[in-house]
Design a protein around this nucleic acid. Sequence first.
RNA 1: GUGAGUGUAGCUCAACUGGCAGAGCACCGGACUGUGGCUCCGGGGGUUGAGGGUUCGAGCCCCUUCACUCACCCCA
Length: 428
Amino acid sequence: MKIASVKGFHDVLPGETARWAWVEQRARDLFARYHFREVRIPIVEKTELFTRSIGDTTDIVEKEMYTFIDRDGTSLTLRPEGTAGVVRAYVEHALAQREPVSKLFYFGPMFRRERPQKGRLRQFHQVGVEVLGRDDPAIDAEVLMLLHDLLVELDVRRFSIEVNSLGDEQCRPAYREALRAFAEAQRTYLCANCQRRLERNPLRLLDCKVPSCAAIVAEAPTIEGFWCQACRDHFAQVRRMLDYAGVPYQVAPRIVRGLDYYVRTAFEVKAEGLGAQNAVGGGGRYDGLVRSLGGPDVAGIGFALGLERVLLALGTTVDERLEPPLEVFIAPLDREAELRVLAVAQRWRREGFKIELGSAHRSLKSQMRQADKCGAPFVFLVGEAELEAGAASVRDMLRKRDYGCAVSFEWTVSQVRAYLRSLAELAA
RNA sequence: GUGAGUGUAGCUCAACUGGCAGAGCACCGGACUGUGGCUCCGGGGGUUGAGGGUUCGAGCCCCUUCACUCACCCCA
């Protein structure tokens, strides 16, 4: 009986992994330019970390977490997102004491037990950044610039960044109440879902896609009218900086995030080619979070991108060019040759030569076919004659030429490379 | 959690109103002894997702079940 992978947990096979590596490398290069540094944190955390940070009435915490009881009775959870763990580590290791501002990034798998569909898996991967220790609008702008540049760098097709301010603990409660009161009056016209949202999380009414609800919501009061002076100023500054720097974005008064810890600046990225799940990323400011997790009262802001969705939204320019080409394929023709070739290849590989080895168990024909398929520009042939001469015969695959016993087994890699280069001129 | 669709070779898919389970690609081998792509020839591969039912006979019809996909919900 075959064992299949678990529902919503996917394999990434060779070929596809090159695209992943490409994305990660481009992201790393960009992060370095913005001077963000990598953190690696555990995949498993105490369940309480997520219930306290994400919010225990959110969908994630209520029904999507992979939670289990460890043998000592502790409740543990596979992380459903990255921010909580990063903040936990920040507090635990007192990073605030070491540096006034921490600019961090991470890559890794996240787990949410949802019904899988296009662009949505139970194990999915995110790249995220967090800035701890700055509450001024300039850092919001910088993070959004990084987000924008990252999307450009990764060649995400036709994306848009939507920005909003959710207010803070000063002004959001009043807005929440106003919205609830407004919706309450329309209750009978709302869909069943929205009626439920009304009690639990009125802000979520704003992103209902049911047309009748959307029509009602269009008439609803917007957060704008409720911002306190501080929030209003903050958001105005952020927008002014983005405008000045030429970062494109749209103000979207209706966006709300699915995690409770966001305050003030919040944003989402949408892109094409993703099916119904058109959000490739999102993030925002979470000023109270560090404190609520037992740390100092420092501000935080960050975002995360879903890598599977980024991959779905990539332009057509990405291909296998990332895989460095093979330099030589070595084909041994018998056991004796195989023995010799293994040792020679090892020496050359240690010097940085990129070599694939054929097997003497296979016919020369099939080794040649294999060499061709690997894209090897040269094949080194080793049989009886070559062993005797102490040198491999060379087949130039591109120019279809042969050179008998031409490359000595004693040569260094630079000698071999120099010789192979000279073949081009020889052929011309 | 809810709904719809689809399950046939490693992959993409055929197979008439129920009548011998096939093709292309991929893989392996061969076409003058130790030379690739192109062409030609050949080969291995399947419990038709699983279980039951109807029938002389089921890939096809009926029931059950499982898996996958898409969508709702929500989000990355």
